[in-house]
């Protein structure tokens, strides 16, 4: 069963071709990585997936819906963590969780989500007083509290320390085990290699390579996804 279907997606900003003919599908339960350097078209693609932007052309189906037309219906079933997207400084952790839970028809128990993400000890702290890593974890937890079928996570572990990163990977593994479909936008190749079933490598608004990390490593005759990425994108050397 296909959760995401993107065909020949195009989006221009003025004369810039941000996304220039992108096609891919994501199956139910799959963890799909969107990789690429800044300006490669990752964020625009993801914004089109969640209905924040309207494509110039091409078709998108997410959970059977057109995101540009049915954004709110889709939002009931999708958890999104944006690269940018803060919370009010004076909003406390527990309040944020309770508030976001109230947005959804069938949310998870917000206290349980809060505990699972290690936010229990800081439940009464205000967002503005949290460390970068704590803010990131709270933002992730608010994306998951609605009990989504699909999660779209942009820059999942940016700003987290190595321990918190590993913990986050474990939690994403749990999501995966529970059958949740995930789209991860990432700069970190080790993360994509560890977590993703398949990855799409973006460059100049197109997908330049698509496959499982193992396939891409094999195709390039390299030793890791990071090396495969550099070989495929022709960068870094």
């Amino acid at each position: 069963m296909t959760v995401i279907e993107v065909e020949d997606l195009r989006k221009n900003y003025g004369n810039t071709r941000a996304v220039d003919g992108v096609s891919f599908t994501v199956a139910r339960g799959e963890t799909f990585g969107v990789l690429g350097h800044n300006g490669a078209g990752k964020t625009t693609t993801v914004e089109c997936l969640v209905g924040l932007r309207k494509p110039d052309s091409g078709t998108i189906r997410v959970l059977g819906e057109n995101p540009a037309r049915r954004r709110r219906a889709l939002a009931q079933r999708t958890g999104v963590q944006l690269q940018q997207g803060e919370l009010p400084d004076r909003l406390r952790v527990a309040e944020a969780m309770r508030l976001f839970a109230a947005f959804y028809d069938r949310p998870d128990d917000w206290r349980a989500v809060l505990e699972r993400w290690g936010l229990g000890p800081i439940a009464n702290k205000a967002f503005g007083d949290l460390s970068g890593g704590q803010q990131q974890r709270l933002k992730l937890a608010t994306a998951l509290v609605g009990g989504p079928e699909l999660v779209v996570l942009d820059e999942l572990t940016t700003g987290l320390d190595p321990v918190a990163r590993r913990e986050t990977w474990t939690l994403i593994g749990d999501l995966k085990a529970a059958g949740t479909t995930a789209v991860l936008v990432s700069h970190f190749m080790d993360e994509a290699e560890e977590l993703c079933d398949r990855v799409a490598v973006f460059g100049n608004g197109r997908i330049i390579a698509l496959g499982s990390p193992r396939e891409l490593i094999g195709r390039t005759g390299t030793g890791s996804l990071e090396e495969a990425y550099f070989a495929l994108s022709g960068e870094g050397r």
Binding site: L52, A75, T78, V80, E86, L87, P88, F103, Y104, K139
Partner: peptide, 18 residues
């Protein structure tokens, strides 16, 4: 204006809340 600048509005736009 703070909500707009700090992308709180944007975050909210990805929830079912209008």
């Amino acid at each position: 204006a703070t909500y707009r600048e700090r992308k709180v509005l944007r975050r909210l736009a990805t929830t079912p809340v209008s």
